[in-house]
Design a binder for these strands. Structure first.
Lengths: 257, 257
DNA sequence: CTAATAGTGTCTATAAGACACTATATA
DNA sequence: TATATAGTGTCTTATAGACACTATTAG
């Protein structure tokens, strides 16, 4: 565009004060087996403990506190791409479900200056997190239940970010097929139920009636095998359970119906 | 915090490249009477036409194109506060419904440099927009229907931002009591119906059955007058209509029920 | 009385929710 | 055969959707 090139000659980049930093933070969630009740699953959040000293051996900002993983955005990527990159660096996995849910830019939120944080939530399969924990110093990365998390000493404004991330994950869980990201590609109905109950642990679902609602769930379908028979698995039980998969389908929910 | 003060001594702000600008843009929506069918309402978006030359008389970036109103965020405010301030400056109204829905930070989206845009949608009463249009140059600010908007020459990546804003307003309209922001504080059922249909103009609501759903709508209640009688209005019809108001109530919608 | 908008009643099909029951496997 | 998990059947009550109908005003 010629006209813009001309206009740029007159544009002064320094006319406005600019931020001192642009970061991406990620609330990494996973669902693991409940230790108290083997029949249940429980939602957990991964946090890192900020080291007391930085790479150069100097005291670290918010050192010793628990924080969301994250880092600075480069000028050749979006905040979303930065989150993806950082997550891959942390956990060593690609193809993780990631969603941007908010911006935290209140002046004074970071003692280092005017720093804008983009918040995302991620859903990672338990396996990768276990792997990562083993590989690294066990004191630095840990999984917490939502009850435990708020008893920790949290860095910056991460308490607020974590609260919001939980609100969003619950909302998306109820309104979209987000549950798919917690499940294997082919799953059973009881597995789906457990995931839903892990997030809505205060709610009840009549286990038996869930099956009857199935025909209304146009967002899942039975998995067929080679001879067009429905695939089954015995991984959770003696009696084989039918396998289902999610179908790409736009959902519409309304309070007015 | 003593520890952080100590740590700050060692922190170098210039370690990372920082953005060249941080802005807030606002998609301003209103609902006005449909000119073709007086019985309907229609959703419109306000856009401004960027002037060809800037205040100093130099050619303006993306001059002549239609754009969302907005501007740079100051370092003593959040992007949300900036949006609120700019909207107040533009329309002269406070207490406008405003919601942040996205960040646009793709490298190259703005020819001026690495500029991060925060997108919001706003809902403004028709009256204020009419007023504003009259006060200003009529060629510079205009209301467009959603069909008209995409035939315009739009500045920056505002086409994408507008598309997203429409998705969000529809989603929030269906899932929350956002409709309240388009309505007077006390409204009639037919008024509510028209607002919903203005946003979901492709959907049908059986006008008569809407009344039967009322008792389920725990988010609205009848407005009572002094003697505990239900308030009525005759502003739309000869026969008086009962008045309702929104009640603050958390909504929960789920695809699993 | 007519016209215009507000609001009800009624019927049928489908869905929700409670809960008792059956099915398929392993050990 | 016991037992653990998967899945059905049945009954009652609530809701959706179609559509015919009634109500209240101004002029």
């Amino acid at each position: 565009m010629k006209k813009n090139e001309e206009a740029l000659k007159y544009y002064d980049l320094n006319k406005y004060r600019t931020p001192d930093g642009y970061t991406s933070d990620i609330a990494v969630f996973t669902i693991v087996d409940d230790e108290e009740d083997q029949n249940k699953k429980v939602l957990k959040l991964m946090l890192i403990k900020r080291s007391e000293i930085d790479a150069e051996g100097n005291p670290n900002i918010e050192g010793g506190k628990w924080a969301l993983p994250g880092g600075f955005v480069r000028n050749d990527e979006t905040a979303f791409e930065a989150a993806k990159r950082e997550l891959a660096e942390e956990t060593g996995v690609d193809h993780i479900h990631l969603k941007h849910f908010g911006v935290y830019d209140k002046p004074g939120r970071d003692p280092r200056g005017w720093i804008i944080a983009n918040a995302h939530y991620a859903i990672v399969n338990e396996y990768y997190l276990e792997h990562r924990q083993a590989a690294d110093d066990a004191d630095d990365v840990q999984l917490f239940t939502l009850d435990e998390v708020f008893n920790l000493d949290l860095a910056f404004d991460h308490r607020k970010i974590i609260e919001d991330s939980i609100k969003w994950i619950k909302k998306d869980m109820a309104e979209t097929t987000l549950a798919r990201t917690f499940l294997p590609r082919e799953f059973t109905i009881p597995e789906l139920q457990k995931v839903i109950l892990a997030v809505f642990y205060h709610k009840q679902i009549e286990s038996n009636n869930f099956y009857k609602k199935l025909h209304k769930f146009d967002f899942i379908e039975e998995v067929k095998g080679e001879n067009n028979e429905v695939k089954e698995t015995r991984r959770n039980s003696k009696r084989p359970a039918k396998m289902y998969r999610f179908v790409d389908k736009e959902r519409f929910v309304s309070i007015y119906l």
